[in-house]
C-alpha cells in the first residue's frame, strides 16, 4: 500500500454550507492544487474557491463569428463566383436571402465547437483512468455528499497536516487516494493489440461498406439512378396501341416548330469541309471551352479525354480523343459529332 505514489487526500462533508465554508478555508490557506467535488453545481462556489471567471464565452464568440464568416464566404464562392446562376432575376450575391443559412451555421459552429473544446481540451476528457475514479470518495460525491480533494503536488501538501486540517473543518470521512500503478505504466492503451486490432477491423468494415454502397448497391434497382423506369420510351413498343408503337405518328408532312433542317445529316465529311469555327483561339475562349467540357463532356470522356470516367461501361464507351484520327478532324466535323 505505502509504496504506491499518493495522489491526494480527500474529506467528505454533509451540508452545502459546510462545503462552502471548507472551500473558503482551503483557498485561504493558500492551497492551489485542490478541488471541490459536489453532486451538482453549488451556488457561490467559484467565489469561495477564488476561481477566475470562466473563459468559455470567448470560445463561443470566436467560433460563432468564424461560423458566420465561413458560411457567407462559402456561399459567395459558390453562388456568385464559381458558378453564378440567375435565380428569379435576383443579384448573384443577395445578402438577405443568405442570412438564414449564415445564422444556422453560426449557431452550429458556436455550440458544437464550444462543447467540444470544453470537454476535450479544457477538461481533458475522456479520462476514465483518473485516480479518483472508483474510490469511496467518488461514489459519495456522485450521490449526496460534498468533498474536498487536496492534491499531493501542491507545494503545501503534507499528508498528516492536510488530514488534520480537513478534520478540523468538520470532515466526516478522510481518505487517502493513490495512483493506480498499472495505469501509470501502461500509458498508450491505443497501442495494445486488442485495441489496435479493433481499430483495423472498424477501418476495414467501414471502407468495405462504403465501397459496396457507392459502387454496387447504388447501381442495383431501385437505386440505379433511374435507369429502370416503368414508362414508354419514344421509339419503344406497347400493347396499348394497335400498331404496337409507343409513339403516335405525326400527321403527314408536319414539321416541328422552330426546326431548321441540318444540311449535313449523315455526312460528317461534308460537315468538316463546309462548316467553319466562328470562335477565335483566345485564352478566354479556351477557358470557357474547358469549363463546358468539364461540365458536359467529362462525365463520359473524363477530364483528360481518355474515356476513363466514372461511368465507364454503363454507356457505349467513348473513344480516346488523343488518337491521330480524332486529333486531325476539322472543327466542323467535331461540331457535327457533338451536335
Amino acid at each position: 500500500m505505502t509504496n504506491k505514489p499518493i495522489y491526494a487526500v480527500t474529506g467528505l462533508f454533509e451540508k452545502p454550507d459546510e462545503i462552502i465554508n471548507a472551500a473558503e478555508k482551503v483557498a485561504y490557506e493558500g492551497y492551489l492544487n485542490y478541488d471541490i467535488h459536489t453532486p451538482y453545481p453549488v451556488h457561490g462556489m467559484d467565489k469561495a474557491m477564488r476561481l477566475p471567471p470562466s473563459t468559455m464565452g470567448y470560445f463561443a464568440l470566436v467560433l460563432g463569428l468564424s461560423g458566420a464568416v465561413l458560411a457567407l464566404f462559402f456561399m459567395w464562392i459558390t453562388t456568385a463566383y464559381e458558378y453564378p446562376l440567375v435565380i428569379g432575376g435576383k443579384p448573384f450575391f443577395s445578402l438577405p436571402a443568405l442570412i438564414p443559412i449564415t445564422f444556422e451555421v453560426t449557431v452550429l459552429l458556436a455550440t458544437c465547437g464550444t462543447v467540444i473544446s470544453m470537454l476535450f481540451i479544457f477538461f481533458k476528457m475522456p479520462n476514465n483512468s483518473h485516480p479518483l475514479h472508483d474510490t469511496k470518495f467518488m461514489k459519495q460525491v456522485s450521490s449526496d455528499k460534498f468533498g474536498v480533494c487536496i492534491e499531493a503536488k501542491d507545494k503545501f501538501f503534507d499528508k498528516e497536516k492536510v488530514k488534520s486540517f480537513l478534520l478540523s473543518l468538520g470532515a466526516t470521512e478522510v481518505e487517502e487516494i493513490y495512483f493506480d500503478v498499472d495505469d501509470l505504466k501502461n500509458k498508450n492503451k491505443i497501442l495494445t493489440p486488442k485495441f489496435s486490432g479493433f481499430l483495423v477491423f472498424v477501418i476495414v468494415l467501414t471502407s468495405a461498406a462504403s465501397y459496396a454502397t457507392l459502387n454496387i448497391v447504388m447501381y442495383m434497382p431501385p437505386f440505379d439512378w433511374m435507369m429502370t423506369q416503368s414508362r414508354l420510351n419514344a421509339q419503344g413498343t406497347t400493347d396499348f396501341y394497335e400498331n404496337h408503337s409507343a409513339m403516335r405518328e405525326p400527321v403527314e408532312g408536319s414539321i416541328a416548330r422552330g426546326f431548321m433542317p441540318y444540311a449535313f445529316i449523315g455526312q460528317p465529311d461534308s460537315a468538316g469541309k463546309y462548316l467553319e469555327n466562328p470562335l477565335e483561339m483566345t485564352e478566354a475562349n479556351l477557358a470557357v471551352g474547358k469549363k463546358k467540357f468539364n461540365t458536359y463532356c467529362s462525365p463520359c470522356h473524363d477530364y483528360y479525354g481518355r474515356g476513363e470516367s466514372r461511368l465507364k461501361g454503363r454507356f457505349p464507351n467513348p473513344p480516346s480523343l488523343h488518337t491521330d484520327k480524332t486529333r486531325n478532324w476539322p472543327d466542323g466535323r467535331l461540331y457535327h459529332i457533338i451536335t
Binding site: P41, D46, L51, M138, V141
Partner: peptide, 11 residues
C-alpha cells in the same frame, strides 16, 4: 467521459 463532479469543471 470520466466526469468527476469537480467544481472547477462545474464552473
Amino acid at each position: 467521459l470520466g466526469w468527476r463532479h469537480s467544481s472547477r469543471h462545474w464552473q
